[in-house]
Nucleic acid binder design. Structure first.
Length: 124
RNA sequence: GGACCAAGCGGGGCAAUCGCGCUAUAUGUUGCCGAAAGGUGUUAUAGCGAGGAAAGUCCGGGCAUCACAGGGCAGGAUAACGGAUAACGUCCGUCUGAGGCGACUCACGGGAAAGUGCAACAGAAAUAUACCGCCCUGAUUGUUAUGCAGUGUGCAGAAGACGAUAAUUUUGUGUCGCCGGACGUAGUUACCUACGUUAAGACCAAAAUUAGUGACUUAAAUCCGAAGAAUUUGUUCUGUGCUCUGCAUAGCAAUCAGGGUAAGGAUGGAAAGGCGAGGUAAGAGCUCACCCACUCCUAUGGUAACAUAGGUUUGCUGUAAACCCUAUUUGAUGCAACACCUUGACCUUGCUUUCUGCAGGGCGGCCCGUCCUUUUACGGUCAUGGUGGCAGAGCCGAAAGGCUUGAACUGCGGGGUGACUCGCAGUGAAGAUAGAUGAUUGCUGCGUUCUUUAACGUACAGAACCCGGCUUACAAGCUUGGUCACACC
RNA sequence: GGAGAUGUACUCAAGUGGUGAAGAGGCGCCCCUGCUAAGGGUGUAGGUCGGGCAACCGGCGCAAGAGUUCAAAUCUCUUCAUCUCCG
């Protein structure tokens, strides 16, 4: 499953400061309404309103190998979540990996994502 | 079997389901974003899809631009010799030095005898000097010994009123009168020699005078007293001892001055070759023998560094990862380079003889050399966004052709001690732009635990224009060659 | 991705080869005060290892590790960490 990525740094800092937050042992999830969602929907081939996703893995986690692997596991867990339950659309979702997420399996991460999204009320 | 040395390999595998990126072909939509250039979006099939270090960015090169790329200066880099390589600070072989019983390992390994600088503290002294010490000379002072002189004095002996001793005077057929002096004669140029004369003078003897007018001894005086004892004064000469003074000589000590010396002196990382003998006032490579180091020369071996042998000069601190010198080498920047496209802003010199020149300007860090001074455009500068560069079953170009294709990799064979090289054959698809290899499950390899149908672990680590090296990180395991000592056969 | 700078105590920091590594803040102790603050005095590699009952003494220690030198915080090399610039 493809994601529309957040590419601008100011959107990340806005999400950290203004967005709703849910923290688990391995993750920190920030959610903010996306004001440009309708405009971006026109560029989408299927004219859908989608969520923009940002995955952050800081240098505290480790070297380049550790960080990209953690990011892949996060992406896999997120795609399996979105396949099973539908999420509300029109949001900026930033998922930051904490140091406990290193070496976890994607099934563990998936369980934590369920808890976080439930807490934020993102499921339809 | 043990302990080691060196060079390498290796970097788990298979399957199922779901999913990601790129390329090609076909298909689909001609939509959306954007000022434009351009970008993005469907599905199917096929192919491909991280490393030995992709890392650090420490060297070298390709490539691109600046002034087509030249010379010099500055700055940087390198540093035994020979070779390999496109090149290198890399690699190979050798030499030298150090370490190891050995296999073998380690070394930025030119020049300190071109010059400058630095060497704290300690130490007498730190790169040439002289503090102590040792030696010589001189001066002063002190002291000791010897000798001489003087003074005083002790002791012993001798002499003396039959007149000692000293001074003066007189006298003598008295003795001497040397050497030297003066004069004369002879020899002789002269010096000189011989002989003679000369008289002062010295000594001796006698006498007289003077002194103390008989001083001293003999004795006398004084005092005490029964006997007796004590004190004071007292001549000359000889010998001998002692004290003091002066002088001379010699020695010793101290101080000062001048000179010689570098043997010795606690320190230090380092003290000016080592040791012995000679030598010297004392000493010193000052000289000699042996040893050590070193310069140069010769011979032999080696392409060379260098090694060995002989001769010869010299006796030199260390430091160049201090400045520096020598040799070699090096233009700068770095794909965020740069090229093209889009949009926009700004800029586009004078004099002159119209040839050149002057002025001005551009121009590698600087200089020389070089370039421009005009054609208002198909120019230049700056900025915006984009594409290319960039990666390949193809791309650019009208075509020829160029790139892909790499100083590439694999295998076999030849050459070389080796790094490496030559020939033939074969192979040839990563290329992202928030950054692609994942998730889940099963089986299995390896290691550990031993709960053997189990549990845990399975390293270091992610391409970003490309290549050659270096450095650093790395789990378990494996291979090859070699060394040493022991045991067994 | 590329280019550069820095690292000294708890903090800020001086120290361009020469021997107990300056200084300030902070901290400990004492004085001052009825008590505190302020002020004054004094101590302080303040870390670690070894020795010693203790006072104290010695070794190591300037991001880490090697090297050059008689001697290294300082010079050289390698590594690590932090920060800055281009973008």
């Amino acid at each position: 499953m493809k994601f529309t990525a957040i590419t601008e740094n100011h959107l990340y800092s806005k999400a950290y400061s203004k967005g709703k937050r849910a923290v688990t042992s391995a993750l920190a999830v920030y959610v903010l309404p996306d004001y440009q969602a309708k405009r971006l929907a026109k560029a989408h081939p299927e004219k859908k309103v989608v969520n923009r996703i940002g995955l952050t893995t800081s240098t505290k986690l480790g070297g380049a190998v550790v960080r990209s692997r953690t990011r892949r596991i996060l992406r896999a867990a997120l795609s399996s979540v979105m396949k099973e339950r539908e999420l509300k659309v029109g949001f900026l979702i930033v998922i930051a990996a904490r140091s406990a997420s290193v070496g976890r399996k994607s099934t563990d991460i998936k369980r934590e994502l369920y808890i976080a999204f439930e807490k934020l009320g993102m499921f339809k």
